[in-house]
Amino acid sequence: MSVEVRVPTILRSLTGGEKVVTASGGTLAAVVADLDGSYPGMGARLLDDSGLRRFVNIYVNDEDVRFLAGLQTQIADQDSITILPAVAGG
């Protein structure tokens, strides 16, 4: 199961500058674990003890995972995952 993950500028120091990386896993938690294996430190930047960090948003096929099943969100082949820092609008 392989998915594309879009990585924001602030995390690209971990991916050697890559904007889009490939990861695998059946749930978002597994994908994050896989990312952390390929890019050590990624897990700690995205998660804290309570789950997804407050200023980190992750979208699966453009939908915010906090309104899906969070880290337990099922990931299918070809899904697209986007990681973004939380920003203001208005």
Partner: peptide, 18 residues
Amino acid sequence: RYGELVYGLRNLDEGFVP
């Protein structure tokens, strides 16, 4: 979802939730 410039924070702690 804006272009990358807008997300050009120095670190994730600079994120913002109203």
